[in-house]
Each structure stands twice: as structure tokens, then as C-alpha cells.
Design a protein around this nucleic acid. Structure first.
Length: 693
RNA sequence: GGAAAGGUAGCUCAGCCGGUUAGAGCACGGCACUCAUAAUGCCGGGGUCGAGGGUUCGAGUCCCUCCCUUUCCA
């Protein structure tokens, strides 16, 4: 009996491009959906543009356009990127639509009438010049705990402290640059705490992964707070029906956007919305999300649904974060890879395969290692999988173009067809990495089979033509089983394979009856190898020397990391094998010979008669030093005054043409300074003269 | 600061409820083969399973402490 399933992945926000973090989630969802469809289930996949909120409003203003125009433009880009990665949404909508507004108002009114909405006054930062209340992220200032400058209004990136904008030292509005004032305003709150028993029961039903359950337990422990779902005008969103000048907070209507998108789809296809959304619905509803938004999806969302008389999600599937080459995606490291950047260089399926090969059912983070990506795809897909078809196709073609009437080794084929349930269960349970391990083991087995039976040797004896065809038929059928199992991951390749086989690859159960006696089409290569040189260009070399942007965590990096970051300027050169002579090892006492000190730049000036040098006057706490430094190409003297640098304080003074240099300032750079020169410095709070060790 | 996940061969990872000489793929070395996109097959080298304690007849697998990495925190 086919299941009725509604699936969503998280809504991309309409103020930036899709990046690999979005793509891995879309791939995870899409693979699951395609698998369900291959099993004959009625599985719908909807998504939408998350269109509301202050950031959209401000970005539109900055671009001199309207939020609607901005959303339309970004949504079109997002849609194209999703399509580029073969993400098969049944419908891609927007939250700024009548459908979403309909559900938003309906839910609000029902929750209000049931007594779950309360009002009370809130004191909030207000920008008098821009005439608007400021979200926490739009107030910046100095962390009250560690004194790091220029931190967001809700938490410190450096020390991790959490606080409110009012706690900041020297708060500044990022909208106008002025100092905010504090004003009171009435807000609407959703009484989340009253749903605790329901939520506990819901989570006990086994809808969530163990790690997510643990997180929820922690939140229950801390106590569920009322949730402020309103914002003051000006705000881009839906106005609250019974509160003029108040708008629904973007996070209130974002998940409702799932239902809005579904409603639009239902209208298009004549589906019964109620059958999916009523409290006792037998349809299943799943949300694929990243772990950062599990609070909204595992607490607010089920509570809002339940309180408003709708069904709750069957389950929420939470995945971990994507890291690139072992570290968080970062713009400054160039590892912030957009969907567009990838698609301009490479086809989508290798990445779908690689993500699938690494995705498990848990919330663990997933690392994209570019070298591993290339090796894995070339070896698994081209070397193993496609090779089976490629090496067998010729024998069939030369032998008349038709498959044999029966399999020479039914027992071996049974191993392949018998894996269907095991591999299917892995897909169902989102253990794609397990499924792919299984599939590749079978691919090895298929290649071994061909090797053992040596059709190329048999083919030399015309009397053995039937035997040759039989072996190739066995091989082709094993290939067919494997590409069927991989079809959720590689839909385009599966379609191409279907054309070659003369029988579409579409249903999971097709594998149970081998393809016999039928004609094959001419074999065309189903995949090409990835060029490591092209793959390496996914990582962007940092463009120019960063214009003095030294704040917070970015600056707290260890010296080794800085060196690495600079090394990345020559993209992957080191990884490509150009290993520079490894430096000799030293002992700790060699290191302690260095007297590294933090110094403050008191004065800086270009040196007359030199293209490279700046003359620095440094405060070492107890003394001042005069140092010449070859950083003129990367720093303007006036930008340096007041900042902290690291210097070698016990370097032999050196007489130069322009004077005596009494030390050396530490910088990171590529060997030829090609990617720029980067001064090392210390976090806020450091004092001149402090020793570095 | 709180929390979660992870630390197993050069790389990416698998090792279920503790039990024979710790596995796979890639990479590397050798051999074979030539049907296949220098693809494939066979053989081989390579691991003090992060560190230190503990429980046990026996621990990569359980407990404690510490170190490191990544990530999350309405």
C-alpha cells in the first residue's frame, strides 16, 4: 500500500546565494524522496523562499529596490541552482504569498482564541535616525565580558558570552551607525511552555534522532520560554490581523511556508490539503533541517501546529554541518563554495554522489575534502561502476547486440538482487553512506566476475560466442542492479543508463527480474573523470590583502593557522604535491630563545626612497623600538597606528640605509608574497610588552 | 561558559550488545591482464585503535580523568 508522504527541506533565505550547506541538505532530502518514489510511494517534496524579515528589508533598501523585487531575483537564482543540482521539488514557493498568509493568519487566530497568545511590553534597541527597532544582530559593540570590539548584540564570537544588546559597551546600530536608544513596545508572545507535556509525548514517540532528543531534554531542563512572535513596523512580513503596526516575526511564518507551498501545489494538482494536515492524518510529514534550526522545528513548530489544530510532523530529520577541508566554510579562507561556483565548473552528480557517500543518519558534521572528492568519484563511479557497463557493452554489440536469454550465474545475480531490501532499508533510514558502501562492494564483485571469466579470451574462439554473450549479460545485469540502487543519488546517469539498457531504470523492484534477450543501445560513456585541477578551483584564492579587518575570533587564530590561510593563496599547491622542504625540527629551548612580544604601533610612515618599507615606532611597554618592515604593499601607514602586532624583540639590531631596525614584525605570506602579506596580531585586551609563548 | 559529535593505516571511513592474528576503499610497491574512460584483477608493505588510569579471564568496543578537532546554543 503506497504511503502518502510530504517532505520539506529548510527554506533558503532570500538575501544570499545558495552554498554547499544548502546543497548537502537538498541532496539529502532529494535522495530520500527519489528513493520513496522508486518504491512506488506517493512522495511530495516542497520548499520555498524564506522572504521576510529585517535583513531582506535592509538589503532591498541598500540595493535601491523593493523587497518583492529582491526576493524575486534571489528566488530565481536559488531555483536555478536547485535545478542545477537535480533537486526535484514538486513545488518551490515563497513565504510572501497568499497561501502562506492564509495559514499564518489561521494559525495565529486559532492559537489566540485558544488562549496561547499573550501580550506584554518589551524594551528593545531603537535606531532614531532610521526610525526602527533593531534586531539583536543589528546592534554591534564591545563584549561586556572579554571587551572584544565590534561584536553582535546577542553573543560574542570571541569568548562565547551571551547577552542582550543593552549589555554591550558602546552599542552602535549597524543600520545608521548611530547609538541606539531603548524604547518599550508591546509584543505578542506564544506560550510555548504550555505545550511541554505534548512535546514530551511527541518526542517519546520516537520521531527524533537520539542526539536531538538529548538536546531537547536539555531545553526542557532549562525551561521553555514564551516566544516573541511579533515585530514592530517597519518590517517586511505579514501584518498581524488584530494588531496594526505589528508584523509576524519571520521565524513564525517560515515553517508555515512549508504548508503554503504545499497548498499551492495542492491547488495545481487537485490534492486534498486537509487529508495531509488534519490532526489524525495518515499521511506522513517530514522536515529535513540542519541542527542549527532544531529549536524551531522540534519545539515551536510542533507546538504551533498542535495548538492550531493541525497534525504534527511525523519526524524531523536533523543533519550536521558541512565543513570544507576540515574547517568551517569560510569566506576569508575561500572555502565558502556557492552552488553557482560549483555548477559553473562541474556537473552535479559527482557532488551528489560524494555527499551521499558521506551522509549518515546522525547529526555528525560532514567534511568535504576536495582531494577525497576527486579520488572517490573517479574511482567509484568511473573506475568501478561505469566500467562494468563499459567493458561488457562491446561484447554484446559485437555478438549481435542482444543480451543472452538467461544468466550464466543466477546465484551471483541473486546476491545483487537480494541486496535490494538491505540497501533500501539504508536509504529509508538515511544511512546513505552505508548504502553506498554496500553498493560499491557489489561493484567490486562484478568486476571480479568479469575478470575471472575473461570474455576477451573466450572471444578469440568463435565457438564460444554464446559463452561470451552470457558473461557480458551477467555483467550488464549486475550493472543494472547497481545503477538502480544508485538512481536516487544519480538520477541523470540512471536515465542515461536506462536508454543504454533499452529499459528505463525507475522502479526499485525491477531488479528482481533480470534483463534477458533484449537489445541494447550503443554504449555512450556515462560519466567522465573529474580533473583535480578544476576541482581545486572551487576554493577561491583570497582576492586582495584584506583591508584591515582585525576583529574577534578571526584574529585569535594560531600562528600556524595564519600561515596555512596565507598558503591557500596558491590554491592547493601544497596538496598537489609540491611539498616544500620540510623545516628541520627544533626543541622547545630553541623556541624559547626567541623573545616574541606584543607591541603597539605608535607611529607608522612610508620610508622615503624605498618601495617596500614602512618605518614603525613600536611600544613594547617598557621601551620604544624603531623597526623597518617590508609591508608597504599591503598596509597603509595610517591604518596601522594603534594596532597590536607581534615582534621578535631580541633580534640583533640591524643597520639599514635608512636607520637602525631594532626588531622584526611577524607576518604571514605565501612564499613569494603573491597572495598578500598579513600581519599577526593579538586579541583585544592584550597589553604592549606581553610575551608570546 | 554550557552542550553535542568525533579523534582507528598517508587520506576518507566501517567496526553491532566487550572475545580468535583490527577491516574496506583510495593512495603506495610488485605481478597479471588488455574487454573497458591508464580502467580491472591478484599479492604486498603500512595501525602502541588521541593520552593516562580503572573494571574484566579478556577492551578499539564499558567507566573515570585529561588533551585535540568540529559544531550548536531560543
Amino acid at each position: 500500500m503506497p504511503r502518502k508522504i510530504l517532505v520539506t527541506s529548510a527554506l533558503p533565505y532570500a538575501n544570499g546565494p545558495l552554498h554547499f550547506g544548502h546543497i548537502i541538505e537538498a541532496v539529502q532530502t532529494d535522495v530520500w524522496v527519489r528513493y520513496q518514489r522508486m518504491r512506488g510511494h506517493d512522495c511530495l517534496y516542497v520548499c520555498a523562499e524564506d522572504a521576510h524579515g529585517t535583513p531582506i528589508m535592509i538589503k532591498a533598501k541598500a540595493e535601491g529596490t523593493t523587497p518583492e523585487a529582491l526576493i524575486a531575483r534571489v528566488a530565481a537564482e536559488h531555483r536555478a541552482d536547485y535545478e542545477g543540482f537535480l533537486i526535484g521539488h514538486d513545488h518551490f514557493h515563497s513565504t510572501h504569498t497568499p497561501e502562506t498568509q492564509y495559514f499564518t493568519n489561521l494559525m495565529y487566530e486559532r492559537l489566540r482564541d485558544a488562549g496561547y497568545m499573550t501580550r506584554r511590553s518589551v524594551r528593545q534597541a531603537y535606531d532614531e535616525q532610521a526610525a526602527m527597532f533593531l534586531p539583536d544582530r543589528f546592534v554591534r559593540g564591545t563584549c561586556p565580558r572579554c571587551k572584544t570590539a565590534d561584536q553582535y548584540g546577542d553573543s560574542c564570537e570571541n569568548c562565547g558570552a551571551t547577552y542582550t544588546p543593552a549589555d554591550l559597551v558602546d552599542p552602535v546600530s549597524t543600520v545608521s551607525g548611530t547609538r541606539p536608544v531603548w524604547r518599550d513596545s508591546e509584543h505578542i508572545f506564544f506560550a510555548l511552555g504550555r505545550f511541554e507535556p505534548m512535546l514530551r509525548e511527541w518526542l517519546a514517540s520516537g520521531s527524533l534522532q537520539p542526539a536531538v532528543q538529548a538536546k531537547l531534554a536539555e531545553w526542557f531542563e532549562a525551561g521553555l520560554q514564551d516566544w516573541d512572535i511579533s515585530r514592530d513596523a517597519p518590517y517586511f512580513g505579514f501584518e498581524v490581523p488584530d494588531a496594526p503596526g505589528k508584523y509576524f516575526y519571520v521565524w513564525f511564518d517560515a515553517p508555515i511556508g512549508y504548508l503554503g507551498s504545499f497548498k499551492a501545489l495542492a491547488a495545481k494538482r487537485g490534492l486534498d490539503v486537509d487529508a495531509y494536515l488534519k490532526p489524525d492524518s495518515t499521511a506522513e510529514m517530514y522536515h529535513f533541517i540542519g541542527k542549527d534550526i532544531s529549536y524551531f522545528h522540534t519545539l515551536f513548530w510542533p507546538a504551533v501546529l498542535h495548538g492550531a489544530g493541525f497534525r504534527r510532523p511525523t519526524a524531523v530529520f536533523v543533519h550536521g554541518f558541512l565543513t570544507v577541508n576540515g574547517a568551517k566554510m569560510s569566506k576569508s579562507r575561500g572555502s565558502f563554495i556557492t552552488a553557482r561556483r560549483y555548477l559553473q565548473r562541474l556537473p552535479p552528480e559527482p557532488l551528489r554522489y560524494y555527499f551521499a557517500a558521506k551522509l549518515g543518519p546522525g547529526v555528525d558534521d560532514i567534511d568535504l575534502s576536495l582531494e577525497d572528492f576527486t579520488a572517490r568519484v573517479n574511482s567509484d563511479i568511473v573506475g568501478k561502476l561505469v566500467n562494468i557497463a563499459s567493458r561488457c557493452a562491446g561484447f554484446i554489440e559485437r555478438g549481435g547486440g542482444r543480451l543472452a536469454a538467461q544468466l550464466p550465474d543466477p546465484a551471483l545475480y541473486a546476491e545483487f538482487s537480494g541486496a535490494a531490501e538491505r540497501i533500501g532499508a539504508a536509504f529509508e533510514g538515511r544511512d546513505y553512506s552505508g548504502a553506498i558502501r554496500d553498493i560499491m562492494l557489489l561493484a567490486d564483485k562484478a568486476n571480479q566476475y568479469v575478470d575471472q571469466h575473461k570474455p576477451w579470451t573466450l572471444a578469440k574462439d568463435p565457438a564460444k560466442a554464446d559463452e561470451v554473450r552470457a558473461v557480458a549479460t551477467q555483467g550488464i545485469n549486475m550493472f543494472r542492479a547497481l545503477i538502480t540502487y544508485l538512481a536516487p543519488v544519480l538520477p541523470a546517469m540512471a536515465a542515461a543508463a536506462g536508454r543504454f539498457l533499452g529499459a528505463p531504470v525507475g522502479r526499485w523492484d525491477d531488479v528482481q527480474s533480470p534483463l534477458l534477450g533484449t537489445a541494447l543501445e550503443r554504449y555512450e560513456p556515462l560519466a567522465v573523470r573529474l580533473d583535480p585541477k578544476v576541482v581545486a578551483t572551487l576554493i577561491e584564492a583570497p582576492a586582495e590583502a584584506p583591508p584591515a579587518k582585525p576583529t574577534g575570533a578571526a584574529q585569535a587564530t594560531k600562528v600556524t593557522k595564519v600561515a596555512e590561510a596565507a598558503g591557500a593563496a596558491a590554491p592547493k599547491a601544497a596538496a598537489a604535491g609540491a611539498s616544500p622542504a620540510a623545516p628541520e625540527r627544533i626543541r622547545i629551548d630553541d623556541f624559547t630563545k626567541l623573545d616574541l612580544r606584543v607591541a603597539k604601533v605608535l607611529a607608522a610612515a612610508a620610508v622615503e626612497g624605498s618601495d617596500k618599507l614602512l618605518q614603525l615606532t613600536l611600544d613594547l611597554g617598557s621601551e620604544r623600538r624603531n623597526v623597518f618592515s617590508g609591508i608597504r604593499s599591503a598596509y597603509r601607514p595610517e591604518d596601522l597606528v594603534g594596532r597590536f602586532v607581534v615582534m621578535i624583540a631580541n633580534l640583533e639590531p640591524r643597520k639599514m640605509r635608512f636607520g637602525v631596525s631594532e626588531g622584526m614584525v611577524l607576518c604571514a605570506s605565501a612564499r613569494d608574497d603573491a597572495g598578500g602579506i598579513f600581519l599577526l596580531s593579538a586579541d583585544a585586551g592584550v597589553q604592549p610588552g606581553m610575551k608570546v609563548s
